[in-house]
Nucleic acid binder design. Structure first.
Length: 470
RNA sequence: GCUCCCAUCGUCUAGCGGUUAGGACGCGGCCCUCUCAAGGCUGAAACACGGGUUCGAUUCCCGUUGGGAGCGCCA
């Protein structure tokens, strides 16, 4: 990238599975960097493996990106469609003597590796066709095209995260550029596509660090400019090993169903491996302002749901009541049994939201906490509520209903009435408030009960309370 | 086996030669309180190990150990 040009970034997933948490973070970093510098963020689907690539996976990846709000510029590029161009570059290398035909059969190579393994030698192509003349090959035999890589000296990957990583060239073998069926390999395709797309910065998982050296060899053979590399450490599961289904390896949009907010997810992912001093709560706008490559950590991080929950709770609390009511509405409408809210439910939802939102870490919890506001009539008691409504408690409730009925139906009045009643009966406030809560909400936990009485209104409240009062 | 990367509280991390090693999540206690939260205060909790370099190492170098990645006509 020259001084006055804008960076070009890309996210290049292969559609052999859904978008998981690691890929999502890679995409996020690329996106943030592009947005930070007013650059371009491209999406390239690496579908050259025809066996394993599926339309469903492409769909899942796009959906995950969209949910996370990682909008890409222009149309997604499908790598397979560019195979002709890849072939052309391989031919060019061949013509320039920088690549050669290799007629070794898969069985032959397999045997070679088995032998190397048995002898404890490094496993790599031995260059058996590197200097042979193609005329020595059997008539019409299939061949691949390999890069005639430099064998002495070293290839240095200058990485913004990992520093200078040096690879001795004699450790790198002559990689295949074009398969015997004429299709390009990943190594070739990546290099050609990045060049053609004008990619200036490559931010990707550290599992590609070794590949970077090989790609560099191709780039150098072609005399093309070298992009800035940043290989980000991988994300591990809570046990330090690979991510498993239980924690994070699932499709990113499944977090939507679990009640997480995209913004909270972005914040969490950002902090997983990147830092800005002691800052934790970093809304996207701020993240774009602050993101850089220098502060990406070098060690792998583990995925931790507890911290995600906490962050999600913070974002929920920071949202407006109306926006949260919308979020809950959408959440309820998006379930397996879609539900729609009537106007009165929505009104109650917004009114109760201040009390509701500080009690929820996810949209799921928020929806559950709001359940008692969404429909009319006496509540079904959960176990904890049933335990509260003992025979004694129901008698207390009976007296309370009479006391409340006489008052204006506003929270301060209702609270005063309850306090007076409790005092007259020699009860602690909780002994009166809890039966109230249990009958009104069907649960042992809710936002402040007098406000809930007010929001539900006199008629509805009395109907619910009377159902359990004796 | 070979190549490469990594190593600060349980977890995410700050630190970039001299700090009472800081913050966040989680955990414990106290306060607040109609429940549960939220909030406030507070406590326990870390530099993997061994050598160097240096007046002085969490920090720089080497090794050990422990994790991880790669070594395909997969990406």
């Amino acid at each position: 990238m020259t001084k006055d040009s804008k960076p070009v970034l890309r996210f290049a997933p292969s559609p052999t599975g859904y978008l998981h948490i690691g890929g999502a973070r890679t995409a996020l970093f690329n996106w943030l960097y592009a947005r930070r510098h007013g650059g371009t963020f491209l999406l390239r689907i690496e579908d050259t493996d025809r066996e394993r690539s599926t339309p469903e996976a492409v769909e899942a990846i796009l959906r995950g990106m969209e949910w996370l709000g990682l909008n890409w510029d222009g149309q997604a590029v499908y790598q397979f469609a560019r195979a002709g161009r890849h072939r052309e570059v391989a031919q060019q290398l061949l013509a320039e003597g920088k690549a050669y035909r290799c007629f070794a059969t898969p069985a032959e190579l397999d045997e070679m590796r088995t032998k190397q393994r048995a002898e404890g030698k490094p496993i790599r192509y031995d260059g058996r066709w590197r200097d042979r003349d193609p005329s020595e090959a059997p008539e019409g035999a299939p061949f691949v095209i390999r890069l005639k890589a430099k064998q002495d000296g070293e290839t240095i990957v200058r990485d913004k995260v990992q520093g200078d990583v040096r690879f001795a060239n004699d450790q790198l073998d002559d990689m295949i550029l074009l398969r015997s069926d004429g299709t390009p390999t990943y190594m070739l395709a990546v290099v050609v596509d990045d060049y053609d797309m004008g990619v200036t910065h490559v931010i990707r998982g550290a599992d590609h660090l070794n590949n970077a050296a090989r790609q560099l060899q191709i780039i150098n053979a072609l005399g093309w400019p070298v992009p800035v590399y940043a290989h980000v450490p991988l994300i591990h599961g809570p046990d330090g090993a690979k991510l498993s289904k239980r924690h994070g390896a699932m499709a990113v949009h499944e977090y939507e169903r679990m009640g997480y907010l995209p913004e909270a997810m972005r914040n969490y992912l950002l902090r997983l491996g990147w830092s800005h001093g002691d800052d934790e709560f970093i809304p996207t706008e701020r993240a774009i302002e602050w993101f850089n490559l220098e502060n990406i950590g070098k060690s792998p991080a583990r995925f931790d749901f507890k911290k995600l929950d906490n962050l999600n709770g913070q974002y929920i609390r920071s949202m407006s009541d109306a926006a949260l009511a919308d979020a809950v509405t959408d959440y309820l409408a998006g379930g397996e049994q879609p539900r729609t809210l009537n106007a009165s439910a929505r009104e109650r939802l917004i009114a109760a939201m201040p009390g509701l939102k500080e009690r929820a870490k996810t949209l799921v919890e928020l929806s559950q906490g709001a359940e008692f506001l969404l429909s009319d009539g006496p509540r079904k008691l959960d176990d904890a509520a049933a335990k509260i409504l003992t025979a004694d408690a129901r008698r207390v409730l009976g007296g309370l209903v009479a006391a409340l009925r006489a008052r204006d139906w506003v929270a301060p009045e209702l609270e005063a009435a309850t306090r007076e009643f409790a005092e007259a009966q020699g009860l602690k406030l909780g002994q009166a408030a809890q039966p109230l809560r249990a009958a009104l909400t069907g649960r042992a936990v809710s936002p402040p009960i007098f406000e809930m009485l007010q929001i539900l209104g006199r008629e509805e409240s009395l109907a619910r309370l009377s159902a359990y009062a004796t």
